[in-house]
Design a protein around this nucleic acid. Structure first.
Lengths: 254, 254
DNA sequence: TAGTGGTCTAGACCACGAG
DNA sequence: TCGTGGTCTAGACCACTAA
């Protein structure tokens, strides 16, 4: 309650300053802060628009505008008649949001995964740079192969800072769930919010070729993904090498 | 004026029906219709929120909500103090919106293009299917090579229905502007609104290799793009084969 | 100065979901 | 039935642009 009043003071102070930031923006930032700081976890309900409006001494419409933008941002989810919730990584969205490989007929099936290895090692220069780690920080390196339509199609290497995912290697070891982002959220309190992907065509190495049942030198689609939290912190680096003989990467440009 | 009244009648009729569509949605649809039907061309100013509200007998807030969604949709652009305009393909957005190849440092430079050929031919089965054309419809087929950092990097094949772009081959012939979507908009009244891209890794043919200065069989990133109008009609098919030795395809997943 | 979009308020009524 | 989000109104004031 005291915190609420302090918050409101902040809002007033800012909104009265010259060149002030709009109220709904400040409310947006405050809501994001309360989510990132863990006051509300994914799946939690947040106070109703009317409650928030009363707490902050603003109109419902202003709170509403803030929430609307966070819903468009995939941070919150509204459910009519029930309330507003912090977005989750398991249900509706997100399972299919971050997986872009579809088969030639255009339909998307989540692949099964088999973990090949899972070990700790010092981060390479590239890994440390992409994950914003100090040099010689430790990372967990997971390698797995993913089947689509019962055909080995994707080789994935996943790099995670041990500082955030320390006990992942020990516990889950070789039977990781198929959908890692849900695991990050439920087990480590880390929610992936967006990702940057860099795609290239590369030639299959001998090892790629034998794992995927192709000729060495066959063209593969390499996807290097950096996954970021809501705060913009990079927390996962994932390099996928995909056979695109029966599948492709689907992207919609709006 | 009569048209406005008729429109208003439609709105009333719909809004009074059972299970009615929200007013702002109807207004959205009406605005989209007036854009797609050419009443307002790209770059034109549309009536102010207050004028539209009066025309339609709704509050400014309702018009505002409709416009807001169309702005998020890249259909309209607001400029404070000036008005609301139909989005254009030349200015701010869109030049960079549809081009995803960046160099290894992550910076985006538009390529120069050299047209290799431009001819009419009957659509192939695949082309007719992707462009929703009847079999044996005529298409214009443009082939060009694009340089990035003075290095030939992308081979593009562009397929356009002659029904829409009939005189393109004759007039512009071999000196097409670099940014085709602007040309489609200004010369043919066709605005590209979104695109579906399918990415694969392929091996360079002998011809690819000689044009790009690579070894035959080198891996290339193939991007097959179908570009659609606001109404969802496919109007351009573009197949790009890119050398990704010094560049990559950048995508952000939200 | 007049007109536009941008923010904010206060309150009405509806549609939905849960108890 | 009650509380939630969803729609809609009417009007205030501000910030920006152009004439």
């Amino acid at each position: 309650m005291v915190a609420d009043i302090q918050r409101r003071k902040l809002v007033l102070a800012l909104s009265n300053a010259k060149g002030s930031i709009p109220l709904y923006m400040q409310i947006k930032d405050m809501l994001v802060a309360r989510v990132t700081e863990g006051e509300w976890a994914p799946g939690d309900i947040i106070p109703s628009e009317i409650q928030l409006a009363r707490e902050l001494n603003v109109s419902q419409g202003t709170v509403r505008k803030a929430i609307t933008e966070l819903v468009e941002n995939n941070v919150l989810v509204r459910r009519q008649g029930r309330g507003t919730f912090v977005a989750t990584h398991d249900n509706d969205r997100a399972l299919f949001h971050f997986f872009h490989i579809v088969d030639d007929s255009g339909s998307k099936n989540l692949p099964e995964s088999k973990t090949l290895s899972c070990r700790r090692k010092p981060a390479s220069r590239q890994e440390a740079s992409k994950l914003n780690l100090s040099s010689r920080a430790q990372v967990v390196c997971i390698e797995r192969i993913r089947n689509l339509d019962n055909q080995p199609t994707i080789i994935e290497r996943i790099i995670l800072p041990t500082a955030l995912f320390g006990d992942l290697g020990k516990r889950q070891a070789r039977n990781l769930p198929n959908t890692l982002y849900e695991l990050y959220e439920t087990q480590f309190g880390i929610t992936i919010h967006r990702a940057e992907e860099q795609l290239r065509a590369v030639a299959a190495t001998d090892r790629d070729a034998s794992l995927l049942g192709l000729e060495p030198g066959s063209p593969l689609l390499e996807i290097e993904r950096t996954a970021l939290t809501l705060g913009g912190r990079p927390v996962e680096l994932r390099i996928s090498r995909c056979s695109t003989s029966k599948h492709y990467y689907q992207n919609t440009v709006l």
